[in-house]
Design a protein around this nucleic acid. Structure first.
Lengths: 142, 142
DNA sequence: CAGAATGGTTTCAATAAGCAACTCAATGAG
DNA sequence: CTCATTGAGTTGCTTATTGAAACCATTCTG
């Protein structure tokens, strides 16, 4: 794979999931989609593109086809790397709720297992201060 | 604009920034890019596509061209909606750092204004519990 | 003012995406 | 066991998006 910008983790991430469909596939996987047709019907993506994206996501280690118990078809499952996109999906969802709906337009909200609305996800410093783009910098090197 | 899936905030968000370049443009804007050529040189994007993306981001209210002090060219600036993508960029960056570099491959890290590494951003419940895709659900309606 | 740099636009070829129809293996119903 | 159904792709064709390079109009710089 030729990275757009090998030195930037954001660019590497968008190389993997920065297209019209990949994140929606991951979203649906988190929401219980397992089979090719699940994904196809939920997203409405063209089937040849879905084939391509599932392969690409598998190649990058975000999903894997696991053998199902006998008599059942094998299904797609998120790997740890795939599940680890959860914070990305949540922040995107919350951004969408705040900025992609017009004033007063109803939209869904994310709730936890106690029925409470999930508060806005914000980057925090080790001491708990909320951080912004002006209070963070990239250190290259590690 | 015809949304891919009007009912899903994630889909609306990817409709706005779910392409190869938009998030990198926003990343660079957060990192100080102001002019057309700034963006072009930092991302390496084709200029006609950059024109298109800047317009699209402006149309969606993520950036705006603001008049600069007299004798200076006008520059692009992030709006509040654009700045509000910060948590998305950070979670994407952290995901990239964890999963888009091979074992032992050096990569940059994000540090705060005290020089401390920014801890992984995770969705938290109101009571502070970390949340995952299995402990959250979407409630539609509000 | 002349030349360079900036901020685009236009054109055109290459690539990717979408759509419909087709295949082919694995279930499932009778 | 046989035939219909469903799942998981392929293939071929059409449209949309991207990219490279050339072109043009402002805006600076000296």
């Amino acid at each position: 794979m030729a990275w757009t910008d090998p030195d930037c983790p954001v660019a590497r991430a968008t190389d993997v999931v920065g297209d019209r469909w990949s994140l929606l596939i991951v979203r649906d996987a988190m929401d219980g989609a397992r089979s090719f047709t699940d994904f196809q019907q939920r997203t409405g993506i063209a089937r040849n593109i879905l084939t391509d994206r599932l392969r690409k996501l598998a190649a990058h280690g975000l999903i894997a086809q696991v053998d199902a118990p006998y008599g059942k078809r094998r299904v797609y499952e998120l790997t740890e790397a795939g599940k680890d996109l959860f914070p990305v999906i949540v922040t995107l969802r919350q951004w969408g709720e705040r900025h992609a709906y017009s004033e007063g337009e109803p939209h869904s909200v994310l709730v936890d297992d106690h029925g409470e609305i999930v508060p806005p996800v914000v980057p925090l410093a080790t001491d708990g201060r909320p951080l912004t783009s002006t209070t963070t910098t990239v250190h290259r090197g590690t």
